[in-house]
C-alpha cells in the first residue's frame, strides 16, 4: 500500500463518501444519485463493466473503498457521454468516472497492467513532453508497452495499418526525430507543475 493511500485511510477513517467528495473530480455529486439505474444501461462496453456507474455510486455510499478503487470498471469508460445526457439527476457521471480512475491511479491502487491505464499514462507523457501529441512516438510506445517481444508481435500485427496510413500521408515517419512541438515547452512544463502542486495541496497530498 502506498503512503498516500495509508494516509487517506487514516484521515478519512470509514467515511469514503467524504473522501470522494473532497478529493475526486465532481465527487460532491455522488450523493445526488437516486439509484434509478438509467446510467447502468448506457455504457458502450456495458457487459464488461463489473460495476456499473450506478453500482459504483452505491458502493461509495456503502463505504466499499478498496473494491471501488481497485475496480477495473472506471477504466472501461469511453467518454461517450451517454450517461450524462440521460441521468435524471444531472450527475456528471463521465467526469466522476475519470476522477475515480485518476484518484485510484494517484494512490497507486488502480489495477496493475490495466490497458487503458497504460495508454492513458503514455498519452499524458507524450503530450506533457512537448505540449503536443506526437502520434508516431505514441504508437510505438503503445506497441512496446507490453515489453519487447510482445511489442514486435504487436507491430507486425499492425504493420499493414501503419504502412497504409503512411502511404496516405497520415503518419509521418519523420516524427520520431522530433516532430511537432510547442515553442514555449518550458512554460508549459512549469505551468503543469504548478497546477499539480496547487491540486495536491488542496487535496491534502502535501501541506
Amino acid at each position: 500500500m502506498s503512503d498516500h493511500n495509508q494516509h487517506a485511510v487514516a484521515h478519512y477513517r470509514n467515511n469514503f463518501l467524504r473522501e470522494v467528495e473532497d478529493r475526486v473530480e465532481d465527487g460532491e455529486w455522488v450523493k445526488m444519485c437516486m439509484q434509478c439505474g438509467v446510467c447502468a444501461g448506457s455504457c458502450p462496453f456495458g457487459p464488461h463493466w463489473e460495476h456499473s456507474p450506478q453500482k459504483i455510486f452505491m458502493m461509495i455510499r456503502a463505504g466499499k473503498r478498496e473494491e471501488v478503487l481497485a475496480s477495473d470498471s472506471m477504466w472501461m469508460c469511453t467518454s461517450c457521454y451517454n450517461c450524462i445526457v440521460r441521468c435524471p439527476r444531472k450527475l456528471p457521471i463521465t467526469h466522476i468516472m475519470h476522477g475515480l480512475a485518476h484518484y485510484a491511479h494517484r494512490l497507486g491502487v488502480a489495477p496493475k497492467g490495466q490497458p487503458t491505464r497504460e495508454v492513458a499514462r503514455l498519452f499524458w507523457n507524450n503530450l506533457a513532453r512537448s505540449g503536443r501529441v506526437n502520434e508516431l512516438r505514441f504508437s510505438l510506445a503503445m506497441y512496446f508497452k507490453d515489453g519487447f517481444v510482445q511489442g514486435i508481435k504487436n507491430s507486425l500485427a499492425m504493420q499493414g495499418i501503419g504502412i497504409g496510413l503512411m502511404k496516405a500521408k497520415r503518419l509521418n515517419p519523420m516524427e520520431i526525430l522530433g516532430g511537432h512541438k510547442c515553442r514555449d515547452k518550458d512554460g508549459i512544463h512549469k505551468m503543469i507543475a504548478k497546477a499539480r502542486e496547487i491540486e495536491e495541496r488542496k487535496q491534502g497530498f502535501t501541506s
Binding site: 473530480e25 480512475a101 505551468m191 503543469i192 497546477a195 491540486e199
Partner: peptide
C-alpha cells in the same frame, strides 16, 4: 484520455 495521469487542474490549465 488525459485523466489517468493528469488531474483536473493540470487538464483545465492546458
Amino acid at each position: 484520455i488525459g485523466y489517468g495521469d493528469g488531474g483536473l487542474l493540470p487538464r483545465l490549465v492546458l
